[in-house]
Protein backbone atom coordinates (compact mmCIF):
# COMPACT_ATOMS: atom_id res chain seq x y z
CA UNK A 1 0.00 0.00 0.00
CA UNK A 2 2.63 2.50 -1.01
CA UNK A 3 0.39 4.47 -3.27
CA UNK A 4 -1.07 6.71 -0.62
CA UNK A 5 -1.98 9.94 -2.30
CA UNK A 6 -0.72 13.23 -0.91
CA UNK A 7 -3.34 14.96 1.16
CA UNK A 8 -3.17 18.11 -0.86
CA UNK A 9 -1.84 17.97 -4.41
CA UNK A 10 1.29 20.05 -4.82
CA UNK A 11 0.79 22.97 -7.10
CA UNK A 12 2.25 22.72 -10.56
CA UNK A 13 3.73 19.93 -12.61
CA UNK A 14 3.04 16.51 -11.13
CA UNK A 15 -0.56 17.28 -10.43
CA UNK A 16 -2.26 15.12 -13.00
CA UNK A 17 -0.69 11.66 -12.49
CA UNK A 18 -0.88 11.72 -8.72
CA UNK A 19 -4.40 13.04 -8.93
CA UNK A 20 -5.39 10.06 -11.03
CA UNK A 21 -3.74 7.73 -8.65
CA UNK A 22 -5.60 9.30 -5.76
CA UNK A 23 -8.86 8.87 -7.61
CA UNK A 24 -8.05 5.23 -8.22
CA UNK A 25 -7.26 4.33 -4.64
CA UNK A 26 -10.88 3.77 -3.46
CA UNK A 27 -11.42 1.56 -6.47
CA UNK A 28 -8.36 -0.45 -5.55
CA UNK A 29 -9.56 -0.70 -2.01
CA UNK A 30 -12.94 -1.99 -3.13
CA UNK A 31 -11.26 -4.40 -5.51
CA UNK A 32 -9.08 -5.83 -2.76
CA UNK A 33 -11.94 -5.96 -0.32
CA UNK A 34 -14.10 -7.86 -2.74
CA UNK A 35 -11.52 -10.25 -4.13
CA UNK A 36 -9.41 -10.94 -1.07
CA UNK A 37 -11.80 -13.40 0.62
CA UNK A 38 -12.11 -15.27 -2.65
CA UNK A 39 -8.36 -15.31 -3.31
CA UNK A 40 -7.62 -16.29 0.28
CA UNK A 41 -10.19 -19.07 0.06
CA UNK A 42 -8.76 -20.26 -3.22
CA UNK A 43 -5.28 -20.25 -1.73
CA UNK A 44 -6.16 -22.08 1.46
CA UNK A 45 -8.65 -24.58 0.11
CA UNK A 46 -7.22 -25.18 -3.37
CA UNK A 47 -3.55 -24.32 -3.76
CA UNK A 48 -2.43 -25.51 -0.35
CA UNK A 49 -4.43 -28.69 -0.88
CA UNK A 50 -2.95 -29.17 -4.35
CA UNK A 51 0.57 -28.64 -3.03
CA UNK A 52 -0.05 -31.04 -0.16
CA UNK A 53 -1.47 -33.60 -2.57
CA UNK A 54 1.63 -33.27 -4.74
CA UNK A 55 3.92 -33.95 -1.78
CA UNK A 56 1.66 -36.77 -0.64
CA UNK A 57 2.01 -38.45 -4.02
CA UNK A 58 5.64 -39.21 -3.10
CA UNK A 59 4.66 -40.77 0.22
CA UNK A 60 3.47 -44.16 1.32
CA UNK A 61 0.28 -42.70 2.79
CA UNK A 62 -2.15 -45.45 3.72
CA UNK A 63 -4.86 -44.56 6.15
CA UNK A 64 -3.23 -41.20 6.78
CA UNK A 65 -2.63 -37.92 4.99
CA UNK A 66 0.46 -37.05 7.02
CA UNK A 67 3.75 -36.63 5.18
CA UNK A 68 6.89 -38.39 6.28
CA UNK A 69 7.00 -41.87 4.80
CA UNK A 70 8.68 -40.90 1.53
CA UNK A 71 8.78 -43.56 -1.15
CA UNK A 72 9.91 -41.65 -4.23
CA UNK A 73 8.11 -42.59 -7.41
CA UNK A 74 6.60 -45.81 -6.04
CA UNK A 75 3.03 -44.55 -6.24
CA UNK A 76 3.45 -43.48 -9.87
CA UNK A 77 5.06 -46.80 -10.68
CA UNK A 78 2.25 -48.69 -8.96
CA UNK A 79 -0.39 -46.79 -10.92
CA UNK A 80 1.19 -47.04 -14.33
CA UNK A 81 1.93 -50.71 -13.70
CA UNK A 82 -1.70 -51.42 -12.86
CA UNK A 83 -3.58 -52.60 -15.94
CA UNK A 84 -6.80 -51.38 -14.33
CA UNK A 85 -5.50 -47.80 -14.26
CA UNK A 86 -4.07 -47.80 -17.77
CA UNK A 87 -7.31 -49.32 -18.96
CA UNK A 88 -9.24 -46.52 -17.31
CA UNK A 89 -7.05 -44.00 -19.12
CA UNK A 90 -7.80 -45.70 -22.44
CA UNK A 91 -11.49 -45.72 -21.55
CA UNK A 92 -11.53 -42.00 -20.88
CA UNK A 93 -9.53 -41.23 -24.02
CA UNK A 94 -12.00 -43.11 -26.19
CA UNK A 95 -14.91 -41.52 -24.35
CA UNK A 96 -13.43 -38.05 -24.90
CA UNK A 97 -12.71 -38.68 -28.56
CA UNK A 98 -16.33 -39.69 -29.00
CA UNK A 99 -18.27 -37.35 -26.75
CA UNK A 100 -16.48 -34.11 -27.65
CA UNK A 101 -17.20 -34.06 -31.40
CA UNK A 102 -20.71 -35.41 -30.94
CA UNK A 103 -21.68 -32.83 -28.32
CA UNK A 104 -20.00 -30.15 -30.39
CA UNK A 105 -21.90 -31.02 -33.56
CA UNK A 106 -25.21 -31.42 -31.78
CA UNK A 107 -25.05 -28.19 -29.85
CA UNK A 108 -23.84 -26.20 -32.85
CA UNK A 109 -26.57 -27.71 -34.99
CA UNK A 110 -29.23 -26.91 -32.41
CA UNK A 111 -27.92 -23.36 -32.04
CA UNK A 112 -28.09 -22.74 -35.79
CA UNK A 113 -31.59 -24.19 -35.98
CA UNK A 114 -32.90 -22.30 -32.96
CA UNK A 115 -31.35 -19.10 -34.29
CA UNK A 116 -33.21 -19.47 -37.58
CA UNK A 117 -36.58 -19.74 -35.88
CA UNK A 118 -38.85 -16.80 -36.53
CA UNK A 119 -41.25 -17.61 -33.75
CA UNK A 120 -40.94 -19.42 -30.43
CA UNK A 121 -37.18 -19.01 -30.25
CA UNK A 122 -37.28 -18.37 -26.50
CA UNK A 123 -39.42 -21.44 -25.95
CA UNK A 124 -37.04 -23.77 -27.78
CA UNK A 125 -33.99 -22.16 -26.29
CA UNK A 126 -35.39 -22.72 -22.81
CA UNK A 127 -36.53 -26.23 -23.60
CA UNK A 128 -33.10 -27.28 -24.80
CA UNK A 129 -31.36 -25.49 -21.96
CA UNK A 130 -33.42 -26.91 -19.08
CA UNK A 131 -31.48 -30.22 -18.84
CA UNK A 132 -28.34 -28.18 -18.08
CA UNK A 133 -30.01 -27.18 -14.83
CA UNK A 134 -30.56 -30.81 -13.86
CA UNK A 135 -27.90 -32.37 -11.67
CA UNK A 136 -25.83 -35.20 -13.12
CA UNK A 137 -26.91 -37.40 -10.26
CA UNK A 138 -30.59 -36.88 -10.93
CA UNK A 139 -30.12 -37.38 -14.66
CA UNK A 140 -28.09 -40.53 -14.06
CA UNK A 141 -30.72 -42.02 -11.76
CA UNK A 142 -33.57 -41.26 -14.17
CA UNK A 143 -31.59 -42.93 -16.96
CA UNK A 144 -30.65 -45.93 -14.84
CA UNK A 145 -33.91 -46.62 -13.06
CA UNK A 146 -36.54 -45.53 -15.50
CA UNK A 147 -35.35 -45.18 -19.09
CA UNK A 148 -32.80 -47.99 -19.21
CA UNK A 149 -33.91 -50.21 -16.37
CA UNK A 150 -33.39 -53.90 -17.02
CA UNK A 151 -36.99 -54.86 -16.31
CA UNK A 152 -39.42 -55.47 -19.17
CA UNK A 153 -41.33 -52.33 -18.10
CA UNK A 154 -38.34 -49.99 -18.61
CA UNK A 155 -38.79 -47.41 -21.39
CA UNK A 156 -35.95 -48.70 -23.56
CA UNK A 157 -37.09 -52.30 -23.10
CA UNK A 158 -40.68 -51.38 -23.96
CA UNK A 159 -39.41 -49.81 -27.18
CA UNK A 160 -37.31 -52.88 -27.90
CA UNK A 161 -40.40 -55.01 -27.34
CA UNK A 162 -42.38 -52.95 -29.86
CA UNK A 163 -39.56 -53.49 -32.32
CA UNK A 164 -39.94 -57.23 -31.83
CA UNK A 165 -37.27 -57.92 -29.23
CA UNK A 166 -39.00 -60.10 -26.63
CA UNK A 167 -36.24 -60.57 -24.11
CA UNK A 168 -35.65 -57.83 -21.51
CA UNK A 169 -32.19 -56.31 -21.99
CA UNK A 170 -30.04 -55.40 -18.98
CA UNK A 171 -28.75 -52.17 -20.52
CA UNK A 172 -26.44 -51.09 -17.73
CA UNK A 173 -25.08 -54.57 -17.02
CA UNK A 174 -24.47 -55.55 -20.64
CA UNK A 175 -20.77 -55.42 -21.40
CA UNK A 176 -20.53 -57.56 -24.49
CA UNK A 177 -21.79 -55.81 -26.64
CA UNK A 178 -21.17 -52.75 -24.45
CA UNK A 179 -24.71 -51.42 -24.27
CA UNK A 180 -23.89 -49.46 -21.12
CA UNK A 181 -22.19 -46.87 -23.30
CA UNK A 182 -25.56 -46.03 -24.84
CA UNK A 183 -26.83 -45.18 -21.37
CA UNK A 184 -23.74 -43.17 -20.41
CA UNK A 185 -23.43 -41.24 -23.66
CA UNK A 186 -27.10 -40.35 -24.01
CA UNK A 187 -27.38 -39.04 -20.47
CA UNK A 188 -24.32 -36.83 -20.92
CA UNK A 189 -25.56 -35.54 -24.26
CA UNK A 190 -28.95 -34.74 -22.78
CA UNK A 191 -27.38 -32.97 -19.82
CA UNK A 192 -24.74 -30.87 -21.54
CA UNK A 193 -25.83 -30.19 -25.11
CA UNK A 194 -28.20 -27.39 -24.07
CA UNK A 195 -25.51 -25.52 -22.22
CA UNK A 196 -23.10 -25.48 -25.15
CA UNK A 197 -25.98 -24.62 -27.47
CA UNK A 198 -26.46 -21.43 -25.45
CA UNK A 199 -22.76 -20.58 -25.86
CA UNK A 200 -22.99 -21.07 -29.61
CA UNK A 201 -26.22 -19.11 -29.80
CA UNK A 202 -24.57 -16.19 -28.04
CA UNK A 203 -21.68 -16.45 -30.49
CA UNK A 204 -23.99 -16.52 -33.50
CA UNK A 205 -25.89 -13.49 -32.31
CA UNK A 206 -22.63 -11.56 -32.09
CA UNK A 207 -22.08 -11.92 -35.82
CA UNK A 208 -23.05 -8.65 -37.54
CA UNK A 209 -26.05 -9.05 -39.83
CA UNK A 210 -24.35 -6.88 -42.49
CA UNK A 211 -21.95 -9.71 -43.22
CA UNK A 212 -24.79 -11.97 -44.29
CA UNK A 213 -26.43 -9.16 -46.26
CA UNK A 214 -23.19 -8.37 -48.04
CA UNK A 215 -22.68 -12.03 -48.87
CA UNK A 216 -26.19 -12.34 -50.24
CA UNK A 217 -25.57 -9.28 -52.40
CA UNK A 218 -22.41 -10.96 -53.62
CA UNK A 219 -24.48 -13.96 -54.66
CA UNK A 220 -24.06 -16.40 -51.76
CA UNK A 221 -27.57 -17.76 -51.78
CA UNK A 222 -27.47 -21.15 -50.11
CA UNK A 223 -27.58 -21.45 -46.32
CA UNK A 224 -24.75 -23.95 -46.49
CA UNK A 225 -22.41 -21.46 -48.08
CA UNK A 226 -23.40 -18.72 -45.64
CA UNK A 227 -22.68 -21.09 -42.77
CA UNK A 228 -19.39 -22.26 -44.19
CA UNK A 229 -18.02 -18.86 -45.09
CA UNK A 230 -19.46 -16.62 -42.39
CA UNK A 231 -20.99 -18.37 -39.38
CA UNK A 232 -18.27 -21.00 -38.94
CA UNK A 233 -15.23 -18.69 -39.19
CA UNK A 234 -16.87 -16.02 -37.06
CA UNK A 235 -17.62 -18.61 -34.39
CA UNK A 236 -14.02 -19.69 -34.09
CA UNK A 237 -13.37 -18.28 -30.65
CA UNK A 238 -16.60 -19.74 -29.31
CA UNK A 239 -15.81 -23.11 -30.86
CA UNK A 240 -12.35 -23.22 -29.36
CA UNK A 241 -13.70 -22.36 -25.92
CA UNK A 242 -16.43 -24.98 -26.23
CA UNK A 243 -13.98 -27.70 -27.25
CA UNK A 244 -11.73 -26.76 -24.36
CA UNK A 245 -14.55 -27.00 -21.83
CA UNK A 246 -15.80 -30.23 -23.38
CA UNK A 247 -12.41 -31.89 -23.16
CA UNK A 248 -11.92 -30.93 -19.53
CA UNK A 249 -15.43 -32.08 -18.65
CA UNK A 250 -14.98 -35.37 -20.45
CA UNK A 251 -11.69 -36.15 -18.71
CA UNK A 252 -13.25 -35.43 -15.36
CA UNK A 253 -16.24 -37.68 -15.99
CA UNK A 254 -17.35 -39.16 -12.72
CA UNK A 255 -20.91 -38.43 -11.62
CA UNK A 256 -22.94 -40.36 -14.14
CA UNK A 257 -20.43 -43.22 -14.31
CA UNK A 258 -20.50 -43.51 -10.55
CA UNK A 259 -24.26 -43.31 -10.21
CA UNK A 260 -25.16 -45.52 -13.14
CA UNK A 261 -22.54 -48.24 -12.88
CA UNK A 262 -22.05 -48.53 -9.14
CA UNK A 263 -24.47 -49.47 -6.46
CA UNK A 264 -23.14 -48.17 -3.23
CA UNK A 265 -23.33 -51.38 -1.25
CA UNK A 266 -21.74 -53.65 -3.81
CA UNK A 267 -18.73 -51.49 -4.43
CA UNK A 268 -17.79 -49.06 -7.13
CA UNK A 269 -18.78 -50.91 -10.24
CA UNK A 270 -16.70 -53.19 -12.38
CA UNK A 271 -13.81 -52.70 -14.74
CA UNK A 272 -15.96 -51.63 -17.67
CA UNK A 273 -16.72 -47.95 -17.71
CA UNK A 274 -14.30 -47.27 -14.88
CA UNK A 275 -12.95 -43.79 -15.51
CA UNK A 276 -9.68 -42.58 -13.98
CA UNK A 277 -11.55 -40.53 -11.39
CA UNK A 278 -13.60 -43.54 -10.34
CA UNK A 279 -10.43 -45.58 -10.09
CA UNK A 280 -8.82 -42.89 -7.94
CA UNK A 281 -11.90 -42.49 -5.79
CA UNK A 282 -11.69 -46.20 -5.13
CA UNK A 283 -7.95 -46.06 -4.44
CA UNK A 284 -8.06 -43.07 -2.13
CA UNK A 285 -11.38 -43.40 -0.35
CA UNK A 286 -12.18 -47.08 -0.79
CA UNK A 287 -8.74 -48.52 -0.10
CA UNK A 288 -7.42 -45.56 1.89
CA UNK A 289 -4.28 -45.34 -0.24
CA UNK A 290 -4.04 -41.55 -0.34
CA UNK A 291 -0.52 -41.50 -1.76
CA UNK A 292 -1.46 -43.45 -4.88
CA UNK A 293 -4.69 -41.47 -5.12
CA UNK A 294 -2.82 -38.17 -5.18
CA UNK A 295 -0.32 -39.49 -7.71
CA UNK A 296 -3.20 -40.49 -9.98
CA UNK A 297 -4.76 -37.07 -9.67
CA UNK A 298 -1.56 -35.54 -11.02
CA UNK A 299 -1.36 -38.05 -13.86
CA UNK A 300 -4.90 -37.11 -14.92
CA UNK A 301 -4.16 -33.40 -14.54
CA UNK A 302 -1.10 -33.78 -16.76
CA UNK A 303 -3.23 -35.50 -19.38
CA UNK A 304 -5.75 -32.67 -19.34
CA UNK A 305 -3.00 -30.07 -19.60
CA UNK A 306 -1.34 -31.87 -22.49
CA UNK A 307 -4.62 -32.21 -24.36
CA UNK A 308 -5.52 -28.59 -23.76
CA UNK A 309 -2.14 -27.37 -24.97
CA UNK A 310 -2.32 -29.54 -28.07
CA UNK A 311 -5.79 -28.30 -28.80
CA UNK A 312 -4.72 -24.71 -28.23
CA UNK A 313 -1.81 -25.20 -30.61
CA UNK A 314 -4.03 -26.53 -33.38
CA UNK A 315 -6.95 -24.17 -32.90
CA UNK A 316 -5.01 -21.09 -31.90
CA UNK A 317 -6.90 -20.22 -28.77
CA UNK A 318 -6.12 -16.76 -27.45
CA UNK A 319 -4.15 -15.70 -30.53
CA UNK A 320 -5.16 -12.28 -31.76
CA UNK A 321 -5.78 -11.36 -35.36
CA UNK A 322 -2.46 -9.44 -35.59
CA UNK A 323 -0.45 -12.38 -34.32
CA UNK A 324 -1.87 -14.49 -37.06
CA UNK A 325 -0.89 -11.86 -39.60
Amino acid sequence: MTTTAPARPAAGRSRRPSGRRAARWPAWRAFLLLTLPMVAGLFVFKYVAIGWGFLLSFNDARGTIALGDWNGLDNYRRLLGDPAFTRSLVTILLFTLFIVPVTFALSLGLAVLVNRLRRGRALFRTTFFIPAAVSYVVGALVWKMSLFSGTPSGVANSLAYLLGHDDAIGWVAAVDPPLYWIVLVTVRLWLQTGFYMILFLAGIQQIPAQLYEAARVDGAESEGRLFRHITWPMLRNTSVAVVLLLIINAFQAFDEFYNILASNLSGLGRADGRTPLIYLFQTALGEQNYGAGSAGAFVVTMLIVVFTLLQGRFAGFGRTAEEEG
Binding site: M145, S149, G150, T151, G154, V172, A173
Partner: peptide, 10 residues
Protein backbone atom coordinates in the same frame (compact mmCIF):
# COMPACT_ATOMS: atom_id res chain seq x y z
CA UNK B 1 -30.34 -64.01 -14.36
CA UNK B 2 -32.18 -60.80 -13.64
CA UNK B 3 -30.20 -57.60 -14.34
CA UNK B 4 -30.85 -53.91 -13.85
CA UNK B 5 -33.83 -54.30 -11.53
CA UNK B 6 -35.13 -51.24 -9.69
CA UNK B 7 -33.73 -52.38 -6.35
CA UNK B 8 -30.45 -54.21 -5.85
CA UNK B 9 -29.74 -57.65 -4.42
CA UNK B 10 -29.94 -56.70 -0.73
Amino acid sequence: MLQGYSTDWW
